[in-house]
Simulated assay, not measured.
Amino acid sequence: MTVARLQGIPGIGVDKMGDAADSLGDADILRLENLDTDLRPPAAALARTREAIDDDAANSYLPFTGLQSLREAAAARVGDAAGATYEASNECIVSAGGLSGILNVLLSIIDPGDEVVLTDPTYAGLINRVRLAGGVPRFAQLRPGADGWRLDLDSLAAAIGPRTKALLIMSPSMPSGYVPSREEWQAIAGHCERGRLWLLYDAAMERILFDGRSVVHPASLPGMRDLTITVGSVSKEYRMIGWRVGWIVGPEPIMNDIRLTSLSNVVCQVGIAMDGATAALTAPDDGVAAAAAEWQTRRDFLMDALHDLPLVRPHGGWSMLIDTRSLGIEPAQAAKLLLERGKIAATPMTDWGPTASRYLRFVFANESVSRLQDIRERIRCSWQT
């Protein structure tokens, strides 16, 4: 019998699609189902990680809250984005990846039955972590338009109630690629200030922005430094998925609780990965700008090649959504046909938010433009559109 805290927590679908594609063993399959990337990590991070393998100090549980050098680099990274100063010793904790950090924060700021507001669509793993922590997810609607996604501010206001404890916002958001405008961030911040609500900011893709957009960190807004908890990682921007290193940066009063949760949960981070992560954060050129430019090129190719299909333009990130239901085909069936007939692996957005079930996700971070050249023909053969 399923325990109560797991009831209502479905899978994320990506694992099933990935397993199905792997089982075919066909290198011709376009891997658009999972957030991987073929772009290499910073050279300095690779070199320092290799050195750490032979460093006995890296083969340790200690320090439990992360290497001081990494905490200093992460605190500086968040501080630069937010236009604020964070003390590494008491306002930064290293986590075993960004999502571990998200769960530890949720376990530290909500009681069972408290509500957390997320955008819809959003990553099912974020929704599931709210539930796993005993929280109740509520949703603010993202609306698709010709220029991408926009936050419905009336929907945001309606999602906030007397049991709301926090807003959990990712920018760029996954799977949509939505990036809040400054005005939308101000609306979010206004609700947080009025209700003294936590803003849990998932900054895993913060700098993966397209079309000349610039970072607006919510802690930079008036009154928000003391209400914002930022969680980041090296996985996406720095292309270091396998390192499993993230960080939590926030105001000192809440960080001791998060420290206790972290010690009680994963305990510590990947020892041999932290030096490499530090090297990535402190490298003179971390490669993020060049990587974002390449990912934008791939996005632009897909938007052009699939211009006659109902794609929603992402503002950043690694993925985009296609509304297959408007074509008369359910996303799960669309994904099945794509894999069987078109050799395309893609994930239906079932349980990624109340309205997400009409979409199929295409990840463009792991396939080059040369590999994507015949994608429109593959889709045509699969769906006969």
Rank of each mutant, 00 (worst) to 15 (best):
D275A: 12
S319T: 15
L197P: 00
I329M: 09
M174S: 09
V231C: 15
I188L: 11
T85M: 05
S319V: 11
D15H: 13
S95H: 08
M17W: 07
A4V: 05
L309R: 14
D226Y: 00
D286G: 04
L302N: 07
H307M: 05
R131Y: 14
P348T: 11
D275N: 08
L35Y: 07
E51G: 10
V249D: 04
L197M: 11
G18F: 02
S100P: 00
R129E: 10
I208Q: 05
M205L: 13
A346F: 08
L107G: 12
S326Q: 10
Y61Q: 07
F64G: 00
E330C: 01
A75P: 03
L99F: 05
V270G: 06
G83R: 10
G276F: 08
S382R: 04
P42C: 14
D36C: 09
I9C: 14
L339P: 00
T347Y: 02
D275I: 01
T228F: 05
C381T: 13
A82V: 09
T278K: 02
E340C: 05
A75L: 03
V78E: 09
D226F: 01
A204D: 10
V94L: 12
A273T: 07
D28I: 04
Q333P: 00
A44D: 13
S100W: 01
P354H: 06
A27L: 09
G177M: 06
P175Y: 09
S220F: 03
G135I: 03
P175L: 12
T119K: 01
L35A: 08
R325D: 14
L153P: 01
A58T: 11
A21Q: 10
N366I: 07
R143P: 00
A84Q: 13
R313N: 06
S214V: 15
G113Q: 15
T122C: 14
L32H: 01
W185L: 04
E72V: 06
T122W: 11
L35D: 10
D80G: 11
S370I: 06
G287F: 05
G18P: 00
K336R: 11
L39A: 10
I160N: 04
G177D: 11
P348I: 10
L153R: 03
L281W: 05
A166E: 06
L337C: 08
V234L: 12
A289Q: 09
D15I: 15
A293S: 15
D111W: 03
P180H: 08
L263V: 02
A74T: 08
L126G: 00
Q7H: 07
F139S: 07
A140T: 08
P348F: 06
A58F: 03
G177Q: 10
K236H: 13
R196E: 04
L339I: 07
L337N: 13
L103K: 13
A334P: 00
A20F: 04
E193N: 02
W318R: 08
A292W: 06
V117Y: 02
R239Y: 00
S60D: 15
E367D: 14
T385G: 06
V288W: 11
D154T: 01
D300S: 05
I375C: 01
R313T: 08
D308A: 15
C192R: 03
Q384A: 15
D275H: 11
R376E: 13
A57C: 04
P42H: 15
G161A: 07
G13I: 05
